[in-house]
């Protein structure tokens, strides 16, 4: 779904871990890097990286967002692909960096940067064309596609294609899969009641699939959905796809 030409399989990739993963879900980030490393790639994790800048951008603080985004432009100087285990952060960098730097001396750099950005599952499918061997026990799961993954990155089928490669995994489609979980960053605290209603409905729709695990590619959604699952003491396990795939295929 990306407009940029599909790159040849590179020998090295950058990994942008995202601030949420950094603070709360580092295992998901490590799993993403491990998956790439096991595909024979050199995975580079620049220690200078912080956050894509989306929180400030979405709240109207463009100068602050740009300052933080500029640091990311500096942190990934080579021309390798930048793989991101989050459709939302990837969407920010891919679709919004060029407009964020409109009229800025760094505009050309931002455009070039944006063309190198891939969401993790997109990269695994479209660039690496990975083949997965499932070593796990039979399990029934459902998928939650994040809004920005679907509608900014055009990543809809790639993660499900990966999950379907797993022979012992039954993927049950959620009829409300495409609907927002209600996270929306500051939305969840600016309109807490609407956000609560949305995530409650989302969890109910996940539960109705009969799955025991809900897999997603975005830790913002997982923090929201997982937090609601835990609060309501539901028998459901939220998983980041990177961790799920690594565990199934490499027994970790």
């Amino acid at each position: 779904m990306t407009d940029s030409p599909r790159p040849q399989r590179p020998h090295s990739v950058y990994f942008f871990g995202t601030c949420l993963i950094d603070l709360f879900y580092p295992d998901a980030g490590m799993a993403g890097m491990e998956l790439l490393r096991r595909e024979g790639l050199k995975v580079v994790f620049p220690q200078k990286q912080t956050c894509c800048g989306q929180p400030a951008r979405n709240n109207g603080y463009q100068d602050e967002a740009r300052a933080v985004a500029r640091l990311q432009l500096d942190a990934f100087p080579g021309d390798w692909p930048i793989v991101v285990p989050s459709g939302s952060c990837a969407g920010m960098m891919k679709t919004h960096y060029p407009e964020l730097f409109e009229g800025d001396p760094d505009h050309a750099r931002a455009v070039a940067f944006s063309k190198r950005v891939f969401e993790l599952t997109q990269f695994l499918v479209e660039v690496l064309d990975v083949r997965l061997v499932d070593r796990g026990e039979p399990v029934t799961i459902t998928w939650h596609g994040s809004c920005h993954s679907q509608r900014e990155m055009g990543v809809v089928d790639q993660p499900k294609a990966l999950l379907r490669q797993l022979t012992n995994v039954t993927l049950v489609e959620n009829p409300r899969e495409a609907e927002c979980c209600g996270f929306g960053g500051t939305f969840s605290v600016k309109q807490p009641e609407i956000s609560a209603a949305m995530v409650t409905d989302k969890v109910a729709s996940i539960e109705a699939t009969g799955a025991t695990q809900v897999v997603s590619g975005d830790c913002g959604c997982l923090m929201n959905i997982g937090g609601a699952i835990e609060k309501a003491a539901k028998r459901l396990r939220p998983r980041h796809i990177a961790e799920f795939l690594l565990e199934r295929c490499h027994g970790r």
């Binding site: 871990g17 709360f24 580092p26 295992d27 605290v189 807490p192 937090g227 835990e230």
Partner: peptide, 20 residues
């Protein structure tokens, strides 16, 4: 507001930066 229907997110003992 967050914890009205969700549990609090848990900070990891080690960040991804550190683990990497």
């Amino acid at each position: 507001q967050w914890t009205s229907v969700r549990t609090k997110p848990k900070f990891a003992a080690k960040s991804l930066h550190q683990l990497a």
